[in-house]
């Protein structure tokens, strides 16, 4: 077998390996994971919220006719201006308003909440925002508070058309620091 014969066989084998190899190369897509929807929502941040838990959390219900936010929550030593706007996970205990005639029956009612923050945020579709989720394990009724603020409107312009009505309603309020950020 001379050199040219070896060359032909080599060529055939090389071609075969190349053709077989394509499948492996193309299929090895890098492992993808979904990033947190928002840089604020990292496991470290949730761990920070849950670290050194206070004996109870101060909470104030603020009902909104359109959004699904529950209200505000803060440590007892914090100002209400530092409170976080949250969703409630009711797997362990239903929210206080479930025992009342209507969802807005406890609007502005304050509570002492017991529980912890969930490791994952929740996406509010009308606001196109991510919110902290508080897992409620117990509560005590407290005094009635004053209106803190309505929910911040979305500036991204990518929420449903229904939100535009909400946005107009909410235009007047933006005096507090928010715990939420636009997802886009």
């Amino acid at each position: 077998m001379n050199f040219s014969q070896w060359l032909q066989i080599e060529f055939a084998l090389t071609l075969t390996f190349v053709l077989c190899g394509c499948a492996v190369t193309n299929s090895s897509v890098s492992q993808s994971t979904v990033s947190p929807g928002n840089k604020v929502f990292t496991p470290e941040r949730v761990a920070q919220l849950n670290a050194n838990p206070p004996p109870y959390w101060d909470a104030q219900r603020e009902f909104h006719p359109v959004h699904s936010t529950w209200g505000f929550i803060k440590r007892p030593d914090q100002e209400w201006s530092e409170a976080l706007l949250v969703m409630l996970n009711e797997d362990t205990l239903p929210a206080p308003h479930r025992k009342l005639p209507r969802r807005d029956s406890d609007h502005l009612q304050r509570y002492r909440f017991y529980g912890y923050f969930d490791s994952e945020p929740a996406y509010e579709p009308f606001l196109n925002k991510l919110f902290d989720v508080f897992v409620l394990t117990g509560y005590e009724k407290s005094e009635v508070g004053e209106q803190l603020r309505l929910v911040e409107k979305s500036d991204a312009g990518i929420t449903s058309s229904f939100t535009r009505q909400t946005r107009m309603r909410d235009r007047s309020t933006s005096r507090h620091r928010y715990s939420v950020e636009d997802i886009e």
Partner: peptide, 29 residues
């Protein structure tokens, strides 16, 4: 909605989604 497909909606938490595919994550596909 126009920006997000919600596989979970009002199931784990009232009125919101905890498992979703947002347009910001589409580049991962």
């Amino acid at each position: 909605n126009k920006a997000c497909v919600m596989f979970d909606y009002s199931n784990r938490v009232d009125g919101v989604s905890t498992v979703f595919l947002h347009t910001r994550d589409l580049p991962l596909i």
